[in-house]
Simulated scan of single mutants.
Amino acid sequence: MTTQPLSRARIVAAAIDLIEREGADAVSMRRIAAELGVGVMSLYNHVPNKDALLNGVAESVLSEIEFTDDPDAHWTDRVRMQARAFRQIAHHYPRSTMLVVSRQLHSNAGLLPVERALATLRSAGFDPLDAVRVLRMFIAFIVGSLLREVGVTPSFAPPHQHMVDPDAVDPALFPEVSDLAPLLAACDHDAEFDFGVELLIQAIKALPKREGSR
Protein backbone atom coordinates (compact mmCIF):
# COMPACT_ATOMS: atom_id res chain seq x y z
CA MET A 1 0.00 0.00 0.00
CA THR A 2 1.45 3.35 -1.06
CA THR A 3 1.44 6.03 1.63
CA GLN A 4 0.04 9.33 0.39
CA PRO A 5 2.74 12.01 0.67
CA LEU A 6 2.27 14.72 3.24
CA SER A 7 1.02 18.01 1.82
CA ARG A 8 -0.65 21.19 2.95
CA ALA A 9 -3.93 19.95 1.47
CA ARG A 10 -3.77 16.72 3.48
CA ILE A 11 -2.98 18.62 6.67
CA VAL A 12 -5.85 21.05 6.14
CA ALA A 13 -8.25 18.19 5.33
CA ALA A 14 -7.26 16.42 8.55
CA ALA A 15 -7.86 19.63 10.50
CA ILE A 16 -11.32 20.06 8.95
CA ASP A 17 -12.22 16.47 9.80
CA LEU A 18 -11.07 16.97 13.40
CA ILE A 19 -12.93 20.27 13.75
CA GLU A 20 -16.17 18.74 12.50
CA ARG A 21 -15.80 15.87 15.00
CA GLU A 22 -14.58 17.72 18.06
CA GLY A 23 -14.53 21.47 17.41
CA ALA A 24 -11.77 23.98 16.70
CA ASP A 25 -10.44 23.82 20.26
CA ALA A 26 -9.28 20.26 19.58
CA VAL A 27 -6.86 21.41 16.88
CA SER A 28 -3.15 21.46 17.64
CA MET A 29 -0.15 20.69 15.49
CA ARG A 30 0.59 17.65 17.66
CA ARG A 31 -2.98 16.36 17.35
CA ILE A 32 -3.02 16.78 13.58
CA ALA A 33 0.30 14.96 13.32
CA ALA A 34 -1.18 12.09 15.32
CA GLU A 35 -4.25 12.03 13.06
CA LEU A 36 -2.01 11.71 10.01
CA GLY A 37 0.45 9.32 11.63
CA VAL A 38 3.47 11.57 11.05
CA GLY A 39 5.97 13.41 13.19
CA VAL A 40 4.82 16.82 14.35
CA MET A 41 7.92 18.54 12.97
CA SER A 42 7.08 17.33 9.46
CA LEU A 43 3.94 19.49 9.50
CA TYR A 44 6.00 22.66 9.67
CA ASN A 45 7.40 22.00 6.22
CA HIS A 46 3.91 22.72 4.89
CA VAL A 47 2.16 24.86 7.53
CA PRO A 48 4.22 27.31 9.63
CA ASN A 49 1.95 27.34 12.71
CA LYS A 50 -1.53 26.66 14.07
CA ASP A 51 -2.85 30.08 13.06
CA ALA A 52 -1.84 29.48 9.47
CA LEU A 53 -3.46 26.05 9.63
CA LEU A 54 -6.77 27.50 10.83
CA ASN A 55 -6.62 30.12 8.08
CA GLY A 56 -6.09 27.26 5.66
CA VAL A 57 -9.19 25.53 7.00
CA ALA A 58 -11.27 28.68 6.54
CA GLU A 59 -9.94 29.25 3.03
CA SER A 60 -10.54 25.64 2.04
CA VAL A 61 -14.16 25.79 3.18
CA LEU A 62 -14.77 29.09 1.40
CA SER A 63 -13.22 27.78 -1.80
CA GLU A 64 -15.93 25.11 -1.98
CA ILE A 65 -18.79 27.60 -2.07
CA GLU A 66 -20.51 27.19 -5.42
CA PHE A 67 -21.69 30.62 -6.46
CA THR A 68 -24.15 30.48 -9.33
CA ASP A 69 -24.26 34.24 -9.68
CA ASP A 70 -26.09 35.66 -12.69
CA PRO A 71 -24.99 39.25 -13.40
CA ASP A 72 -28.12 39.78 -15.49
CA ALA A 73 -30.49 38.76 -12.66
CA HIS A 74 -32.15 41.32 -10.40
CA TRP A 75 -29.99 42.14 -7.39
CA THR A 76 -32.54 40.60 -5.01
CA ASP A 77 -32.25 37.25 -6.80
CA ARG A 78 -28.46 37.50 -6.71
CA VAL A 79 -28.54 38.13 -2.95
CA ARG A 80 -30.78 35.09 -2.50
CA MET A 81 -28.38 32.89 -4.49
CA GLN A 82 -25.34 34.11 -2.56
CA ALA A 83 -26.98 33.66 0.85
CA ARG A 84 -28.12 30.14 0.01
CA ALA A 85 -24.70 29.20 -1.39
CA PHE A 86 -23.09 30.15 1.91
CA ARG A 87 -25.72 28.26 3.87
CA GLN A 88 -25.17 25.18 1.75
CA ILE A 89 -21.47 25.04 2.59
CA ALA A 90 -22.35 25.65 6.23
CA HIS A 91 -24.43 22.48 6.13
CA HIS A 92 -21.43 20.49 4.95
CA TYR A 93 -18.97 22.03 7.41
CA PRO A 94 -20.96 23.60 10.28
CA ARG A 95 -18.14 23.87 12.80
CA SER A 96 -15.55 24.89 10.24
CA THR A 97 -17.94 27.54 8.92
CA MET A 98 -18.01 29.15 12.35
CA LEU A 99 -14.22 29.28 12.11
CA VAL A 100 -14.60 31.02 8.73
CA VAL A 101 -16.67 33.87 10.14
CA SER A 102 -14.38 34.29 13.15
CA ARG A 103 -11.22 34.97 11.12
CA GLN A 104 -10.08 37.82 8.91
CA LEU A 105 -8.97 36.32 5.63
CA HIS A 106 -7.02 38.26 3.03
CA SER A 107 -6.56 35.47 0.50
CA ASN A 108 -8.46 35.26 -2.78
CA ALA A 109 -10.70 32.55 -1.31
CA GLY A 110 -11.50 34.73 1.69
CA LEU A 111 -12.16 37.90 -0.27
CA LEU A 112 -14.13 36.47 -3.21
CA PRO A 113 -17.49 36.07 -1.36
CA VAL A 114 -17.12 39.58 0.08
CA GLU A 115 -16.27 41.00 -3.35
CA ARG A 116 -19.29 39.33 -4.96
CA ALA A 117 -21.69 40.49 -2.29
CA LEU A 118 -20.44 44.08 -2.34
CA ALA A 119 -20.45 44.18 -6.15
CA THR A 120 -24.07 43.03 -6.14
CA LEU A 121 -25.11 45.68 -3.64
CA ARG A 122 -23.16 48.47 -5.32
CA SER A 123 -24.62 47.59 -8.73
CA ALA A 124 -28.06 47.81 -7.11
CA GLY A 125 -27.35 51.46 -6.28
CA PHE A 126 -26.44 51.30 -2.61
CA ASP A 127 -23.77 53.70 -1.40
CA PRO A 128 -20.53 52.32 0.10
CA LEU A 129 -21.63 52.60 3.75
CA ASP A 130 -25.01 50.95 3.21
CA ALA A 131 -23.44 48.19 1.10
CA VAL A 132 -21.03 47.32 3.91
CA ARG A 133 -23.78 47.51 6.54
CA VAL A 134 -26.07 45.23 4.53
CA LEU A 135 -23.25 42.72 4.05
CA ARG A 136 -22.57 42.63 7.80
CA MET A 137 -26.27 42.25 8.57
CA PHE A 138 -26.59 39.27 6.22
CA ILE A 139 -23.51 37.63 7.73
CA ALA A 140 -24.99 38.09 11.22
CA PHE A 141 -28.30 36.58 10.10
CA ILE A 142 -26.69 33.59 8.38
CA VAL A 143 -24.40 32.87 11.34
CA GLY A 144 -27.30 33.20 13.78
CA SER A 145 -29.37 30.81 11.69
CA LEU A 146 -26.49 28.35 11.61
CA LEU A 147 -26.04 28.46 15.37
CA ARG A 148 -29.73 27.76 15.89
CA GLU A 149 -29.90 25.02 13.31
CA VAL A 150 -26.83 22.91 13.93
CA GLY A 151 -25.84 23.75 17.52
CA VAL A 152 -22.17 23.94 16.63
CA THR A 153 -20.79 24.08 20.18
CA PRO A 154 -21.91 22.69 23.57
CA SER A 155 -22.64 26.27 24.62
CA PHE A 156 -25.62 26.34 22.30
CA ALA A 157 -28.74 24.24 22.26
CA PRO A 158 -28.49 20.83 20.58
CA PRO A 159 -29.66 20.99 16.97
CA HIS A 160 -33.03 19.36 17.58
CA GLN A 161 -33.86 20.96 20.92
CA HIS A 162 -37.16 22.82 20.77
CA MET A 163 -37.64 26.35 22.08
CA VAL A 164 -40.68 25.41 24.14
CA ASP A 165 -42.05 22.23 25.67
CA PRO A 166 -45.83 22.66 25.21
CA ASP A 167 -46.58 20.42 28.19
CA ALA A 168 -44.42 22.50 30.51
CA VAL A 169 -46.08 25.87 29.86
CA ASP A 170 -48.61 27.28 32.33
CA PRO A 171 -51.33 28.87 30.13
CA ALA A 172 -52.47 31.11 32.99
CA LEU A 173 -49.04 32.72 33.31
CA PHE A 174 -48.06 32.62 29.65
CA PRO A 175 -51.21 32.64 27.51
CA GLU A 176 -49.48 33.67 24.27
CA VAL A 177 -46.63 31.18 24.66
CA SER A 178 -49.13 28.47 25.50
CA ASP A 179 -51.31 29.31 22.51
CA LEU A 180 -48.35 29.34 20.11
CA ALA A 181 -46.45 26.47 21.73
CA PRO A 182 -46.99 24.06 18.80
CA LEU A 183 -45.37 26.59 16.44
CA LEU A 184 -42.54 27.32 18.88
CA ALA A 185 -41.91 23.60 19.32
CA ALA A 186 -41.40 22.98 15.59
CA CYS A 187 -38.97 24.55 13.15
CA ASP A 188 -38.59 24.04 9.41
CA HIS A 189 -35.06 25.40 9.05
CA ASP A 190 -35.24 25.75 5.27
CA ALA A 191 -38.46 27.73 5.51
CA GLU A 192 -37.14 29.82 8.41
CA PHE A 193 -33.98 30.72 6.48
CA ASP A 194 -35.91 31.68 3.34
CA PHE A 195 -38.32 33.75 5.44
CA GLY A 196 -35.43 35.62 7.04
CA VAL A 197 -33.72 36.27 3.71
CA GLU A 198 -36.94 37.62 2.21
CA LEU A 199 -37.54 39.82 5.26
CA LEU A 200 -34.06 41.29 4.99
CA ILE A 201 -34.37 41.83 1.24
CA GLN A 202 -37.65 43.69 1.62
CA ALA A 203 -36.11 45.87 4.33
CA ILE A 204 -33.04 46.55 2.20
CA LYS A 205 -35.22 47.51 -0.79
CA ALA A 206 -36.77 50.23 1.37
CA LEU A 207 -33.39 51.85 2.05
CA PRO A 208 -33.17 55.28 0.39
CA LYS A 209 -30.47 55.69 -2.22
CA ARG A 210 -28.09 58.38 -0.99
CA GLU A 211 -25.65 60.68 -2.71
CA GLY A 212 -22.56 58.76 -3.70
CA SER A 213 -24.50 55.73 -4.89
CA ARG A 214 -23.77 54.36 -8.32
Rank of each mutant, 00 (worst) to 15 (best):
M1C: 06
T2P: 11
T3E: 09
Q4T: 09
P5N: 13
P5W: 12
S7V: 08
A9R: 14
A9K: 12
A14G: 07
A14M: 01
I16M: 07
D17R: 08
D17H: 11
L18A: 01
E20S: 05
A24H: 04
A33Q: 07
A34T: 02
A34F: 08
E35T: 09
G37M: 10
G37N: 13
V38A: 04
V38R: 04
V38E: 10
M41P: 01
S42F: 10
H46V: 05
V47P: 00
P48T: 15
K50H: 12
L54I: 06
L54Q: 05
N55K: 11
N55Q: 14
N55H: 10
N55M: 14
V57A: 00
A58Y: 01
E59W: 11
L62M: 14
S63P: 07
I65G: 00
E66V: 15
D69A: 12
D69G: 07
D70T: 13
D70C: 14
W75F: 10
R80H: 15
M81N: 07
R84E: 02
F86S: 04
A90Q: 08
H91Q: 15
P94R: 01
P94D: 08
R95G: 03
S96D: 04
T97W: 00
T97D: 00
R103C: 15
L105R: 10
L105K: 01
H106Y: 06
N108H: 03
A109P: 00
G110T: 04
L111T: 09
R116P: 00
A117T: 03
A117C: 09
A119H: 09
G125T: 06
V132R: 06
R133G: 07
V134M: 01
L135S: 05
R136H: 13
M137K: 00
A140C: 10
A140I: 05
A140P: 05
V143R: 02
L146K: 04
E149Q: 10
V150A: 01
V152C: 05
V152P: 02
T153L: 02
P154F: 08
S155C: 13
P159E: 10
P159G: 11
H160L: 09
Q161M: 15
H162C: 09
D165V: 08
P166A: 07
P166Q: 11
P166H: 06
D170M: 15
L173A: 13
F174P: 03
E176P: 10
V177T: 10
S178Y: 14
D179Y: 08
D179M: 14
L180C: 11
A181I: 08
A181D: 05
P182C: 15
P182Q: 12
L184M: 11
C187V: 12
E192F: 15
F195G: 07
G196V: 03
E198K: 08
I201N: 03
Q202N: 14
I204R: 10
I204Y: 09
K205A: 14
R210A: 14
S213R: 04
R214P: 00
R214Q: 05
